[in-house]
Amino acid sequence: MHHGMFPLDDALVRRLVAARFPRWAGLPVRRWPSGGTVNAMYRLGEDMVVRLPLVRSGAKDVALEHRWLPRLASLLPTAVPEVLGAGEPAEGYPWPWSVYRWLPGEPPRAGDLRAPVALAEDLAGFVTAMRSVTLPDAPKAHRGGPLAALDAETRSAIEQLRGIPEEGVDCDAVTAVWEHALRAPVWAGPPVWLHADLMPGNLLVDRDRLSAVLDFGCVGAGDPACDLFPAWNLLPPRARAVFRAALDVDDATWVRGRGRTLSQALIALPYYRETNSAMAANARHVIRSVLAEDQR
């Protein structure tokens, strides 16, 4: 998927675990299929998972999770990863890594939700709890700044998609939605705590309800519009309306949230269309959802 990806395999992960955590040496290690883009996941026995950055840019997220996950866990209504061990570079592997407790559940799939309204309510509860966090010294959330900071990359992605007609993206229509979002008033309130990466692959559902939220590598404070992603990357229209009402989102924040979600999808589609089918499929879903809802 990326330049500079480290070539991980089961044997290397087994050696890393044995050297750093001898008490877990001998437990089965097997690669877990994941649509993630910057980390590899390996089941360790039945109750744990090893998460290792695939690229250098993912390494900084390890320390962020180690610091904040234990502080956030008791403040949130949904399970989050529990850090069981902090790994270090070794055996030729160059970055820190983590061992977490395994969390049951399956990632939800857009278009295949059996109880979308209940899931929307659960997601709104999680986002509300994040916004209510008052822990001091919050880092700046990834994607938590002004929408205009995404303009150049978003427009570049749109031009790439003009050159890929088989994707069928109405580039004039998405440009209009993007420019409408840029004209929305910026967030004038204090920054709020955000997960900042509420993609379907970072959620787990058990018996149709939200059971866990994963991957806090983008966590921090910023514009509350950043945590509206599920409205378009996962929820159908009726559940989307429930999500918005539960969060009491004003028009400007909703427009910024839609713009951010669209921007992420436009950038992801040309980048991942041949290397990560899950990311590409969700990007296509977002573009369709945003254009269907567009109320400029």
Score class of each variant (00 low, 15 high):
residue 71 R to V: 03
residue 229 F to V: 12
residue 195 H to E: 09
residue 68 W to D: 04
residue 180 H to S: 12
residue 86 A to P: 00
residue 201 G to D: 14
residue 238 R to T: 15
residue 19 A to V: 07
residue 95 W to R: 08
residue 7 P to G: 10
residue 69 L to T: 12
residue 205 V to G: 08
residue 57 S to Q: 13
residue 106 E to C: 03
residue 135 L to E: 15
residue 224 P to T: 04
residue 96 P to Y: 14
residue 87 G to K: 08
residue 227 D to I: 12
residue 8 L to K: 11
residue 189 G to H: 07
residue 27 L to S: 10
residue 152 A to W: 04
residue 178 W to G: 01
residue 20 R to H: 13
residue 61 D to H: 12
residue 90 A to I: 11
residue 258 R to T: 11
residue 27 L to I: 03
residue 247 L to H: 07
residue 79 A to S: 13
residue 272 Y to G: 04
residue 288 R to K: 14
residue 129 A to K: 05
residue 190 P to W: 02
residue 125 G to W: 07
residue 28 P to I: 09
residue 226 C to M: 10
residue 255 V to Y: 01
residue 214 L to P: 07
residue 20 R to S: 15
residue 133 V to D: 03
residue 7 P to Q: 13
residue 282 N to E: 14
residue 121 E to N: 02
residue 19 A to I: 01
residue 158 I to R: 06
residue 78 T to S: 13
residue 10 D to T: 15
residue 29 V to A: 08
residue 81 P to S: 12
residue 196 A to Q: 07
residue 117 V to W: 01
residue 244 R to T: 08
residue 23 R to L: 13
residue 188 A to K: 12
residue 133 V to C: 04
residue 225 A to I: 00
residue 166 E to N: 02
residue 209 R to G: 05
residue 39 N to C: 10
residue 260 R to W: 12
residue 240 R to H: 11
residue 35 G to R: 02
residue 189 G to C: 06
residue 180 H to N: 07
residue 180 H to M: 00
